[in-house]
């Protein structure tokens, strides 16, 4: 049972790959699909590993991804990867 997940606004994504690279648990990868602007937005490769830490959201220059925690899981807000 993963602790969290991400919400992706695919149409805002510009495919930079920051979220993929800096996710501490390697949850994401860029998909093969294109969005309307021709970029490859990310999708979850290892959804079960997501902690909902939102580091991906902090890195995303286009406000296209947001990580959130599922309720009732008082996982501490980590600062992994830094």
């Amino acid at each position: 049972m993963p602790k969290g997940s991400v919400a992706i606004t695919t149409e805002r994504c510009k495919g930079c790959g920051f979220c993929v690279e800096f996710c501490p648990t390697h949850v994401l990868e860029l998909s093969n699909a294109f969005n309307a602007k021709g970029y490859h937005p990310p999708h979850m490769l290892n959804a079960e590993k997501c902690s909902g830490c939102n580091l991906c959201g902090m890195y995303c220059p286009d406000f296209a991804i947001f990580g959130y925690k599922y309720p009732d899981q008082k996982a501490q807000k980590g600062e992994q990867g830094q």
């Binding site: 919400a7 805002r12 510009k14 920051f18 902090m58 220059p61 286009d62 406000f63």
Partner: peptide, 24 residues
């Protein structure tokens, strides 16, 4: 995403290039 509240919604997406660090 709480960041959304601080953005003018009618102005995004931004003009910045893919991977431009300004948005980060």
């Amino acid at each position: 995403n709480p960041v959304e509240d601080l953005l003018r919604q009618d102005r995004v997406p931004t003009i910045w290039c893919p991977g431009c660090g300004i948005g980060t």
